[in-house]
Nucleic acid binder design. Structure first.
Length: 198
DNA sequence: CATGGGATTGACT
DNA sequence: GTCAATCCCATGC
């Protein structure tokens, strides 16, 4: 099955930095809640900001699996963060999903997160997992045909231009421009960086 | 076995 | 703007 046409399937075949760009505009669904990806970051085992930089451990083994599974880990002891594992088995690489534009189930999202404006329900990596009900138990589950479903962009949507920036909240390899946002989206975790357009 | 540090968020000065 | 919450896990003794 080469030459997959749909963007979300194509993304799973690309190197991580290109996959991070290709995933913006695709959808994430868990149960009755879903959203359009508007912000991503790339992480690769060749650079020290990536968990997989230290090699295969109990924590990082999911990152080294074949493309198409979820890497869900606990951040700051509180939040679950969702990544899309990409690249071949043996390479530790994943795309962090940092923000979604809610598509379905906003009412349930508000039940889980409290009353909030639509633009703030999924505007952060820890917020969107809470809004969609994604927990650590879903680590290493498949993103095609699994509990979390990675899907193509909603019909009729054109792929937006991207804004490129530095990754947020890390202390190492901060210079890599591996953060990608949908230009103009009001659902991102933070205002876009100094706007370079892809 | 003890310890330090987060790919964050929300509340507060 | 600052800061605490909270827990898994990588590292070091």
């Amino acid at each position: 099955m080469s030459g997959a046409g749909e963007p979300h399937l194509r993304a799973l075949q690309l190197p991580v930095v290109e996959a991070a760009q290709a995933l913006v505009g695709c959808t994430i669904t868990h149960g009755s809640t879903s959203g359009v990806i508007v912000e991503t970051e790339a992480y690769h085992d060749s650079e020290p900001a990536c968990h997989a930089f230290v090699g295969i451990t109990a924590r990082t083994k999911t990152l080294f699996e074949p493309a198409g599974v979820a890497y869900v880990y606990r951040s700051y002891g509180i939040h679950a963060l969702l990544n899309v594992v990409v690249e071949p088995a043996g390479v530790g690489a994943a795309v962090l999903i940092r923000a979604l534009e809610p598509l379905t189930g906003a009412d349930l999202m508000r039940e889980r997160r409290g009353r909030e404006p639509l633009t703030e329900l999924c505007s952060g990596p820890g917020k969107l997992t809470q809004a969609l009900g994604i927990g650590l138990d879903l680590n290493a589950t498949p993103l095609l045909g699994g509990p979390i479903e990675l899907g193509p962009p909603p019909p009729g949507r054109s792929e937006p231009p991207l804004v490129i920036g530095s990754r947020i909240g890390i202390t190492r390899a901060v210079e890599l421009p591996w953060r990608f946002c949908a230009a103009g989206s009001r659902h991102v975790s933070r205002p876009w960086p100094r706007g370079l357009l892809a």
